[in-house]
């Protein structure tokens, strides 16, 4: 099981690296994509001058997660009250203290990817559990009427709103969209593998995990 996890994590990190637009082939590492060393000259992208994408800082991430999940943060209670793990892990995650660390490394590193997955696992379960107990007008995850509905129309309606919420991607009602379709496929895969009665919960948990780990959420 371990190699499976590690491989998946690497695939995620390496594809994030591609989307940053700042990677180069390194012959020393057998062609693995790695960020160039500081000071290396990066080929400018084709086309007119543009802004380079960057990863969210930990501060931006910490402030943004409660916005997309309607108030949920990455918190844990170790027996002395809830603590925010982005704050507890700030130095591990490279948040500058301006004494020993003066610059936040905004490369999409493995450690940030790993901790974001941890955060997503904690938050998504809570979000799903809370959301399914709420009346429609208070829900922020499933925004179609029947929470347990597996119908394509219903699921895609909620997915469109979630794309706006997470990525600021607006897809007009009724319009087809490849990325929404990909997430619908994921919903189907997860709900199809779920035990009876947990289809919608597992489907939406999978969607939440996917959205939080999308490069489109972490990069801008």
């Amino acid at each position: 099981m371990k190699w499976w996890w590690t491989s998946l994590l690497w695939v995620s990190v390496l594809t994030l690296g591609c989307s940053s637009g700042s990677s180069k082939k390194s012959p020393d590492l057998g062609g693995v994509d790695v960020p160039p060393p500081p000071g290396d000259v990066i080929d400018p992208p084709a086309g007119p001058p543009a802004r380079n994408p960057r990863r969210l800082t930990i501060e931006q991430l910490n402030r943004s997660l409660p916005i997309v999940t309607d108030g949920l943060s990455w918190t844990e209670d170790f027996g002395e009250g809830e603590v925010n793990l982005f704050e507890v892990l700030a130095s591990t995650l490279g948040v500058p203290d301006y004494l020993l660390v003066t610059e936040e490394n905004l490369e999409p590193s493995l450690i940030v990817t790993k901790f974001l997955q941890d955060a997503a696992q904690r938050i998504c379960v809570r979000w799903v559990e809370r959301d399914k107990t709420l009346p429609l007008e208070q829900r922020t995850l499933v925004t179609h009427v029947e929470w347990a509905s597996l119908s394509e129309v219903d699921v895609k309606t909620s997915l469109r709103t979630l794309h706006l919420r997470f990525f600021a991607r607006y897809i007009p009602p009724g319009e087809d969209d490849a990325k929404v379709q990909a997430h619908y496929d994921l919903f189907q895969a997860a709900s199809g593998a779920a035990p009876a009665g947990a289809e919608a919960s597992d489907g939406w948990t999978a969607i939440c995990l996917a959205l939080m780990n999308e490069p489109e959420f972490m990069m801008y």
């Binding site: 998946l8 695939v11 995620s12 997955q117 990909a182 994921l186 999978a206 996917a210 999308e214 490069p215």
Partner: peptide
Amino acid sequence: RLLAVVLLCCSVGTVAWA
């Protein structure tokens, strides 16, 4: 198992997106 499904789908989706 759920997370594995998600990661695989996301990674594939990301490659396609890129």
